[in-house]
Every structure is written in structure tokens, then in C-alpha cells.
Design a protein around this nucleic acid. Structure first.
Length: 825
RNA sequence: GCCGGGGUGGCGGAACGGCAGACGCAGCGGACUUAAACUCCGCGGCCGCAAGGCGUGAGGGUUCGAGUCCCUCCCCCGGUACCA
């Protein structure tokens, strides 16, 4: 067939192909997944659901299309694969849109976005089971988020405590961290302060040990490591220091946590976090002004600034003293912002000789430095920096001479015997603050009654529904607090007048259990039945961005453990396998954003190139876990390739019965080698090299077609394998080619083929020959050639011989089947 | 700052410790075409006529052999608990 004839043949028209098959798939219910299919094991594949921001972003495609490919591959491997989708629909942007735009209600804004995004998602051609769609802002969903909150409360995992929030004094409202820019309110530039208020917490620390133990999870090591560091387990001691003068409310001690009880005798000062309630109680009148000024300044610093080791240490003396019970030393009490109130006891002992931060502060303010652990060979001179290594105890009374590692236990035991302290483990992980002073979230189902106190809303009264008519303007209270209709309620316990909790829940609550809902998305009696839970949970394969490594993924693990303890879900972990995909960037290599003007809309790409091309390009452009820039010019290469695929299948070479034809057999071998590579790449989430391998195969087909008549069986087998291998990445085109070749509907229900080992074997292989590690020639030998044979072939090479001339061979390194290296003396 | 990841041709990237640059984009040359587009064939790390030399962020180390392992440093990206 000539080029001209081929151009007259039917062209590949992706829009047409994709529309037809999407309709057929929907009509035939190809992606409606029952809970059980005889002979097929269930596989739960999950991609993180999108936040309802308005339009599907390229990032969503980058997350979902490869995930869909993996799900389709699993299906072809014989599983009954659930691949659901939904919407993370509560959150700040909806409320901001209402405040800024002024016209759109968060619910209307969100619902309109969902409608638009659903349409965009459908053009992706993913195997989503739309029957199971969830929307976290729908009362049918959030009633169960509220139900979970009640279960956690019953289990003692929810409690109220004071916590600080960003407060804008002008707008009289709480700000999210991202609304604070350079310490100021993004709306009005007013300096933001920290304000304490009563809020709800979930006791994530209850599961700290279990969350720490993530070794068994089939997750990326770096994500597991980040989680372990985030949880941050530290062993040490809690130590009580006696206040010289008790406070008005009778407090007579300061409790500190230290990982270095061995340095206790080296304490020369005490530091309280600025938020510590004792600071104001202890400050002496002459220090009042300085301390208040310091606390004001500290309330404006971010935690990141406060923990910087580069920023000069600051602090202020409160004027008060306490006593180191072990030594009887009188110790100054300071407050300094490098001490965090949220960690340990919010107070630390200052041991400048053996802690660098304490050393820095002591230097800054001329506080004495007392060495209690001698470095090897120490001559008693002043230290230039804190000595933080182990050593021998000195200036520590009865503990002198002990190795410091032993002294940790000895001192802790002694303190415990005296009632002055105890061994303790603390975590960097904090309990989860779930209260949000906002409208667009699931209301916390609690009622405050003057008679009965805190009363949970009875489960039968769920959902506590969000009222539609509310005022969004920032006014000092959350919108719900201004809704009389919402706030005023009869106490569920005594029926007297009571007030509803007006805070809503962190949206991470909604996303911590959505994957438990998909298995039973329409259940009105329970969040999930035990039948559906055992059919699908835990998730076999979760995929999503690494930016969720420590928050969403840790919250979800916490939630699952609580759900397990409530007897609702099987297993201990929500996600058996997790893969962290990278982030797609703008063509300029920076994060896509409207303000940078580097946003590429996926809709435009789909319209211009078709969904299959766009999908394959996203998989092709780099390793999935790395992400990278989206180059709008590169996609044409994938488009050309798929047109070529189309042409090869619809306009084959002359097909003859020629099983002996060398070119045809080489093509068949190439097809089976490709199958082996593609299978391996899919198992390892390497969709970029999978596409490359498929391109190489089509290049080989092209060469074969140009070379003339081809053995029918070899060609047809190659085409059959190609259609099957295209299934995961390019589901529409694969279906079309499969059907045109007489394959039974649907290609997506076919079994994944296995390569024929006989066709994978090579007869002759090329071995590079190095001299002193540099390649000088390559020799062709039998695949099973012995080392001697390879050596002989190498020495027979003229090019090798040139480099050996007049030199003596020191050794020869042979890597079987890979390489020969001749090392000269 | 701290925690995690990354840095390879003009660009995206490939490479069980073993031939650096597969597969593409862009570019160049050619075929087809009245012409352009499409398509197809060929050439492309750098220096050099060649032989050869030099090349994977910088510097050191281990090894017969390092993009890959170890140490120090630089730069970029993600997270840092109220963006999701």
C-alpha cells in the first residue's frame, strides 16, 4: 500500500471514537461494579477525590488517568475492581467566594462546580463507578461525618480544650494560615494575633504508637519516614522543679520534659513557652513590662520562625525563681519563644552546656554555663558550643563518674523514688484540632445546656443540618453563631433551652473516611454495612499526591483505627498499598496558577487531541512519582504515535502465509518482549517507560510494513497484543481497534496476555568489551556463551588488541551476559 | 529552620553498580507535493578532519567499573498541623 492510498484511508478521529465508546460503556454498565463477582477477587483501587474548586485541573488528570490505567490493568488481571469517585466539597474557598464575590452561596457555588467537574471527569474515560459517587457536603454524607464524631466522643477520643487560632482584630474573625500574609490579615493588612478559644480535639496521640509502626505497609519508604518523623517519638523524663513561691492558685511546681535527664545538674535556667499560663502568674512587677512586650511579640511570630535555628535566640527573665530539687540550686525562670507550648509540657530546663539552643540563649544573656558531662579529654575550659554527645558525669554529686547514657536511667529512677519526676515518652504529634469557626463544613453535633453541660446530639436527630440563610460577612462570630434558628435548641437531655455548637469540622474529617463510604454509598442506616466493608476494605491501592503524606494520610489512618475499634471495618490500616504521584507544573516549570498565567486547561487539550492522547501524554512525560512541567508542544508526539497505531491496524501490510519469514518472526518476538516490559512497567507504576515500549513496538511494526509482505499470524498476533496493551492507557482507542479486529466486547474484560517464553529467548547477544573501564568494542556471541568464549572473542577483536598492545593484563572482569572488562597493569 | 524528594543533551526524560542519552519534543538534511500542511526516511551530548578526549549540580571518596553507593556543599520542589 502506498502512502497516498493510506492517506485516503479512514483517519483516526479521537473525538468520534471516544464519544461512541463512552456512550456504549455507559449503556452497557461496563463500569458498574457489584460487591461480588463469582471467580473474581475484589480489588479496591482508589484515587484521591478532588476538591470542588471549579474546574478540573491538569493535576487532577495527572493523578487520575494513570490511576485509572492501573485499575484497568488490575481488572484485566482478573480482579473485580472498584474504582470510585466523589467530591471533597466542604472548605474555605467556597466561603471565600461567598464573602468576596458576594453573590454566590457556598452551597450553590459548590453544586455548580460539582456539575461542571462531573462532566469533565466523564470525558476522561475512566472506569469510575458513578453509582457510588459521594459528595461530602451533602446532608446524606455529612450526617455520617457527624455520626463518626459522636462515636469518637463516646470512645473518649474527642474532647474540648483551649487552643490558639489566628485572629484578625479588625475583621473580628479567625483566619486560616494561608490567609495570614507576613503576619497580617490578607484582607485588611491588620497584624494578626494568636487568640485562645475553646475548641474540639480528636485524640490522635492515643494511637501514636500504632501509627508509628508503619513498617508493614506497602507504601513508599520516604512517606513512611515522613510520618515517623512527624509523629516524633522521644523517650525521656518529666521533671518537677519547685517554685520558690507558689502562685495564687496554689501551683508550686514547674514540670518540664527532657530527653536528657543526665544533664539535670547542669540546669542554669528554666524556660516556659510564652503561652504557658505560669508565665503571667510568675512574672514579678518589675519585669511585667518587659515580659508583656515579649509575649506580644511572640504572639506574632509563626511557629516556623520560632523554631528556626538561624534566628538569634531571644527570651526574657520573668523575675521568678525555682529550685532544682536534685542540686538545691536556685534557677531563674525565663520565657522564650523557641519553646513550644504544644510540645511536651510547654516548659524546658535550660542546660546551656549540653543543648545548643540553650547555649545560644545563655550566651546572648550571660547566663552561666555549667558542664556536667565531660567530653573525652576535657580540661575544664569553657565550651565553644554545646557538648551534646555522651560522656562522663561530673559536677553531679552522687552520679559523678557514671557514663552519661547510664546516668539517664539512674537519675530518672532516683527522681521517681523521690516523687520528683518519672520516665515519660512524648510525641511531636499533636492531637487533632477539628473545630473551625466557619459555615461551610459539617456542624459539630454537640449541644451546650446550662443544666446538663455538654450533650451530644442523639444519632436519631442527625444530620444537624446547615441552615441555608446565613450572613457570611466577617463579624466576629462564625456565620452559624448568628443564626438564631440554628443556635437555639432544646437540650436533648432535659429539653430545656440550650445552644448548639456553632463550629464546624475540619474538612480533613470528611476526607478521613470517604473511602469507607464508597463501598456502601447509598446506605441510609449506617455509614457502611459490615458486608460492604468486608467486601472492599481496606483499600488495596491508594494513589495521590505526596503533599498529603503527613496530614490526610495520617488522619485517615487514625480514623481507620478508631473505626476498627468501633467494630465497623476490618484490618488495622486503611490503605494496604499507597503510591505518591508527583505534581504537574506549568510549562515554565513552576506551579500552575492563574496569577502566573501558566495554567493549561485540560479541556482544551482533550478537545484538541482527544482524551486517550492526553492520558498517554501525561503518563509519558516522566516518572509518575516525580511529576514535572507540562509541555504543550510535546503532546504532538503522542498524537502522531496514536495516529500511526491507527494506521498500522487499519492499513496493514500485505498479509501472507510465511511463518519462516525472518522479519515477521522478529516482529512477533518484539511484541512479546514489549508485553514483558509493559507488564513489568505496570507492576512498578512506570507508565512513562510503558508508553516508550509501546512506541518502540509500533516503530518496529512500521518498519515491517515498509519492508513488504508479512506473515499473517505474526502480524495479527502483534496487533492483538497491541490492542490489549493499549487498554490501560488508551481505553477508547484500544476498544475501537479490538472491535475492528473482531474482538468480543469489551477489550477491558479480556484477560491480560502473558508473553511466550520461547519467543523471549535470544540466540545471540552483544557483549561490550572494555579496556580499563572504557568500551573499545562489542562482540556478538551465543546467548549461553561461556566466559572463555567471550574472552576469546574479545581478544580476537582488532580494536581491543590495539589497546592491549605492549601492556600486561592484570585481571579480567566478566559479568555474564552483560559486559567484559580487561584491566591492565 | 526542621522533615522528605529532586538536579542527566536545546527541552521532557531512559539507564538490576556494567555500552550514558532509550522513547519523544524542538532543530537540521532529504523524499512526497504546483505549494504548504500531513506523512515517511535520515542526522543530532560537547570539542576534534580524524584517532581520540571530555561529559549526569560542585568538590572529595569507595570500586576493575559510579548518573547509580558514601562524605561535604550549592540550588530547586513538597510538607510544616486552619489551603486541600
Amino acid at each position: 500500500m502506498t502512502t497516498q492510498e493510506r492517506t485516503e484511508a479512514e483517519r483516526y478521529q479521537p473525538q468520534d471514537v471516544e464519544r461512541r465508546w463512552q456512550e456504549r460503556w455507559a449503556e452497557s454498565g461496563l463500569y458498574r461494579i457489584p460487591d461480588h463477582v463469582p471467580g473474581r477477587e475484589n480489588w479496591y483501587a482508589l484515587t484521591m477525590f478532588p476538591y470542588t474548586s471549579g474546574d478540573l485541573h491538569i493535576g487532577h488528570w495527572f493523578a487520575m488517568a494513570p490511576s485509572d490505567a492501573l485499575a484497568r490493568y488490575r481488572r484485566m488481571r482478573g480482579h473485580n475492581v472498584l474504582f470510585p469517585i466523589g467530591f471533597d466539597a466542604f472548605g474555605l474557598p467556597a466561603e471565600n467566594a461567598a464573602i468576596k464575590g458576594g453573590s454566590k452561596h457556598p452551597m450553590d457555588w459548590t453544586m455548580a462546580n460539582i456539575d461542571r467537574m462531573r462532566g469533565q471527569l466523564k470525558r476522561m474515560g475512566a472506569m469510575f463507578d458513578w453509582e457510588r459517587e459521594v459528595n461530602t457536603s451533602a446532608p446524606e454524607y455529612y450526617r455520617w461525618t457527624q455520626w463518626w464524631f459522636l462515636q469518637l466522643y463516646k470512645m473518649g477520643l474527642a474532647y474540648r480544650a483551649e487552643a490558639a487560632a489566628n485572629w484578625c482584630p479588625f475583621d473580628q474573625t479567625v483566619l486560616a494560615n494561608e490567609q495570614v500574609v507576613d503576619g497580617k490579615c490578607e484582607r485588611c493588612d491588620t497584624p494578626v494575633v494568636q487568640r485562645l478559644m475553646e475548641q474540639w480535639f480528636l485524640r490522635t496521640t492515643h494511637y501514636a504508637e500504632e501509627l508509628l509502626d508503619n513498617e508493614g505497609l506497602d507504601w513508599p519508604e520516604h512517606v513512611k519516614l515522613m510520618q515517623r518523623n512527624w509523629i516524633g517519638r522521644s523517650e525521656g523524663a518529666e521533671v518537677s522543679f519547685a517554685l520558690e513561691a507558689p502562685t495564687e492558685d496554689g501551683t508550686d511546681e514547674i514540670r518540664v520534659f527532657t530527653t536528657r535527664p543526665d544533664t539535670l545538674c547542669g540546669v542554669t535556667f528554666m524556660v516556659l513557652a510564652p503561652e504557658h499560663p505560669l508565665v503571667r502568674q510568675l512574672t514579678t512587677p518589675d519585669r511585667r513590662e518587659a515580659v508583656e512586650a515579649y509575649l506580644d511579640a511572640a504572639a506574632r511570630a509563626t511557629e516556623i520562625e520560632r523554631q528556626s535555628t538561624e534566628r538569634p535566640k531571644t527570651g526574657v527573665f520573668t523575675g521568678a525563681y525555682c529550685v532544682n530539687r536534685l542540686t538545691g540550686d536556685r534557677v531563674q525562670i525565663w520565657t522564650a519563644d523557641y519553646v513550644l507550648y504544644t510540645y511536651g509540657t510547654g516548659a524546658v530546663m535550660g542546660v546551656p552546656a549540653h543543648d545548643q539552643r540553650d547555649f545560644d540563649l545563655a550566651r546572648e544573656y550571660d547566663i552561666p554555663v555549667k558542664v556536667v558531662i565531660a567530653p573525652a579529654g576535657w580540661d575544664g575550659a569553657d565550651l565553644e558550643a554545646a557538648y551534646t554527645e555522651p560522656g562522663t558525669m561530673v559536677h553531679s554529686g552522687q552520679f559523678d563518674g557514671l557514663p552519661s547514657e547510664q546516668a539517664k536511667k539512674a537519675i530518672t529512677d532516683y527522681l521517681e523514688g523521690q516523687g520528683w519526676g518519672r520516665a515519660r515518652v512524648v510525641y511531636r504529634l499533636r492531637d487533632w484540632l477539628v473545630s473551625r469557626q466557619r459555615y461551610w463544613g459539617a456542624p459539630i453535633p454537640m449541644v451546650y445546656c446550662d443544666e446538663c453541660g455538654i450533650v451530644p446530639v442523639p444519632e436519631s436527630e442527625l444530620p444537624v443540618a446547615l441552615p441555608y440563610d446565613v450572613e457570611f460577612k466577617p463579624t466576629g462570630e462564625s456565620p452559624l453563631a448568628r443564626s438564631d434558628e440554628f443556635v437555639n435548641v432544646a437540650c436533648p437531655s432535659c429539653s430545656g433551652p440550650a445552644r448548639r455548637e456553632t463550629d464546624t469540622m475540619d474538612t480533613f474529617m470528611c476526607s478521613s473516611w470517604y473511602f469507607m463510604r464508597y463501598p456502601d454509598a447509598r446506605n441510609e442506616a449506617m455509614p457502611v454495612s459490615s458486608e460492604a466493608a468486608t467486601a472492599w476494605l481496606p483499600v488495596d491501592q491508594y494513589t495521590g499526591g505526596a503533599e498529603h503524606a503527613t496530614m490526610h494520610l495520617l488522619y485517615a489512618r487514625f480514623f481507620y483505627k478508631a473505626a476498627r475499634d468501633a467494630g465497623i471495618v476490618p484490618g488495622d490500616e486503611p490503605f494496604t498499598r499507597y503510591f505518591a504521584q508527583g505534581q504537574i507544573l506549568g510549562p515554565d516549570g513552576r506551579r500552575m496558577s492563574k496569577s502566573r498565567g501558566n495554567v493549561v486547561a485540560p479541556d482544551g487539550q482533550v478537545e484538541r487531541w482527544g482524551a486517550d492522547t492526553f492520558r498517554a501524554y501525561l503518563m509519558f512525560l516522566g516518572p509518575w512519582e516525580q511529576g514535572g512541567p507540562y509541555d504543550v508542544d510535546g503532546i504532538v508526539g503522542v498524537s502522531r504515535w496514536l495516529h500511526r497505531v491507527w494506521s498500522l491496524v487499519t492499513a496493514p501490510p500485505e498479509l501472507v502465509d510465511a511463518p519462516e519469514d525472518e522479519g515477521s518472526q522478529a516482529l512477533l518476538r518484539a511484541a512479546h518482549r514489549t508485553l514483558e516490559r509493559v507488564t513489568d512497567d505496570l507492576e512498578r507504576y512506570r507508565m512513562n517507560t510503558m508508553v516508550s515500549a509501546l512506541m518502540e513496538l509500533t516503530n518496529a511494526m512500521q518498519r515491517q510494513r515498509e519492508s513488504g509482505a508479512t506473515d499473517r499470524r505474526a502480524w495479527e498476533e502483534t496487533v492483538r497484543l497491541l490492542a490489549l496493551m493499549l487498554g490501560p492507557a488508551c481505553p477508547h482507542l484500544a476498544e475501537e481497534l479490538w472491535s475492528r479486529n473482531g474482538g468480543a466486547y469489551s477489550v477491558h474484560e479480556q484477560a491480560w496476555p502473558m508473553p511466550d517464553p520461547a519467543l523471549l529467548r535470544e540466540e545471540r547477544i552483544e557483549i561490550p568489551v572494555q579496556v580499563n573501564g572504557r568500551v573499545r568494542d562489542r562482540v556478538l556471541v551465543a546467548a549461553d556463551a561461556s566466559e572463555e568464549a567471550v574472552r576469546a572473542a574479545a581478544l580476537a577483536s582488532e580494536r581491543v588488541a590495539e589497546h592491549l598492545e605492549g601492556r600486561e593484563v592484570a585481571r579480567v572482569v566478566y559479568v555474564p551476559g552483560r559486559l567484559l572488562n580487561i584491566v591492565l597493569k
